[in-house]
Design a protein around this nucleic acid. Structure first.
Lengths: 243, 243
DNA sequence: CGGGGGGTTGATGGACATCAACATCTGTGG
DNA sequence: CCACAGATGTTGATGTCCATCAACCCCCCG
């Protein structure tokens, strides 16, 4: 019954077949449920002793600020994702985490997490796998910033989001609801907001994809996929590796 | 006796105080020692059932190729680093790994690694931490590509390399030996080789850093650090978290 | 009704890519 | 020992993608 599972348990099941006990441990991590409003960051760059979170509802982004005021969004997170894992493994957080919508998240303390790993090593492997998935996304993002132009970057970004949302049941091949502003897109893609606007217009006028009124509509998946050189295999396993 | 330790054991000790037994398990992972020559990639994008490696000697880079022939180097690895961890946790590798110099590396099979984790959960936590360090570097790299100009990117890259090399005893604050070509720099920094050449000349003429004849010499660490907004804290813990 | 957040469009400029030519150095085979 | 090719580094000329600045729009909300 996948819908009885928490989104996190569901996600980790892609890598490891988890026992009842292990599932229970994951459930226990959801006790400290908290809500956050837009504008109240969960984690702050440079602060020590931060907790991690498991996102249950809503969207957040993790980002870094530079001295000149510009910012770079590193990653967008959606339900089922781990937030701020690095900020508990390191002493001080190396990034900020900001809610894009109102969110619900469960707080996980560093010692609880490490304690769970020592009693249930398969969970440690599964979380290592999940962290590797996140890293794969960051890598793909990095390749975009380094070697793709604005159109390709945008196309890739929207396709990746679409795929991830579908995996947790929040989208269809035709599109998805998207609370991001053009400023978010600009900060994620390393562009100016003005240029984001122009690129979106081009993609719309070319009949590839429309992003308007908080809704992304994919008109031509094939051409878009080709334009972005998008290959979804880094988001999507074919059955668990750890039995 | 840190010099009796393998570079990997030394690195993981920054996060967890490891027992004799755990050290022994790490040592066992070094049995399948292999050498690779320049031009023979260790891991190939798209291939399945790849092994991971622990790098003992030499430099490698992991990169992705795009359809148009351009490439993006994601990460440079130096002795003590894990190679291709994602390619064993995923079924198929999502990147290539190429030796920059002749190298020595120990092959680690996926099942051996996961087996070690289940018997020695603290090792799993430690490797998760090491993977998080790698991710932090990729994130810093991503911020550079998104929001820093060519000079700042180059300065940051050279300072990061310098810091990492010093942590494994392969450099001094004054500089280090560096086998990278200007093409490597270009592919890592998302620039053209021509522009890399100009930026290096500028940095040299400004008396900040010289990269010539396989040698990086840092002339003015303070100004360079300021230019790059470089903060070494993501590379460097202050004592183990897991006791 | 005013103000602020988000979106849209045009004009201008700059950082960096691209193309092209040439210099150096290395190894290699005649 | 020299000729040659290939890899690497250097410099100039030209072009382009995208940033920046500046308006102006709409909509929502206090």
């Amino acid at each position: 019954m996948p819908n009885a599972l928490s989104p996190l348990a569901h996600k980790l099941s892609n890598f490891a077949i988890l026992s009842e006990t292990e599932m229970g441990v994951l459930d226990d991590m959801h006790r400290r449920r908290r809500n956050f409003a837009v504008g109240h960051d969960l984690v702050l760059q440079g602060q020590t002793r931060q907790a991690a979170f498991i996102l249950a509802k809503g969207w957040v982004c993790s980002y870094k600020l530079l001295r000149d005021g510009s910012r770079q969004i590193v990653d967008i997170q959606i339900p089922g994702d781990f937030l701020g894992l690095r900020s508990v493994l390191f002493r001080t957080a190396d990034h900020n985490i900001e809610p894009i919508t109102e969110i619900e998240a469960s707080e996980v303390l560093g010692k609880d997490l490490l304690g769970a790993f020592s009693k249930h090593p398969r969970l440690a492997s599964a979380v290592l796998w999940a962290a590797s998935c996140d890293e794969a996304m960051v890598v793909e993002h990095l390749v975009g910033l380094g070697r793709r132009n604005a159109r390709e970057r945008m196309a890739h970004f929207l396709l990746e989001l679409s795929t991830r949302l579908m995996l947790v049941g929040l989208g269809t091949p035709a599109g998805f609801a998207c609370p991001l502003t053009q400023y978010h897109l600009a900060d994620a893609l390393g562009l100016s907001a003005v240029h984001v606007n122009r690129v979106l217009r081009e993609l719309r006028e070319d009949g590839l994809v429309t992003f308007q009124y908080g809704q992304v509509t994919i008109h031509n998946l094939d051409v878009l996929t080709d334009l972005a050189e998008f290959d979804r295999s880094y988001l999507d396993q074919e059955g668990p590796l750890l039995r």
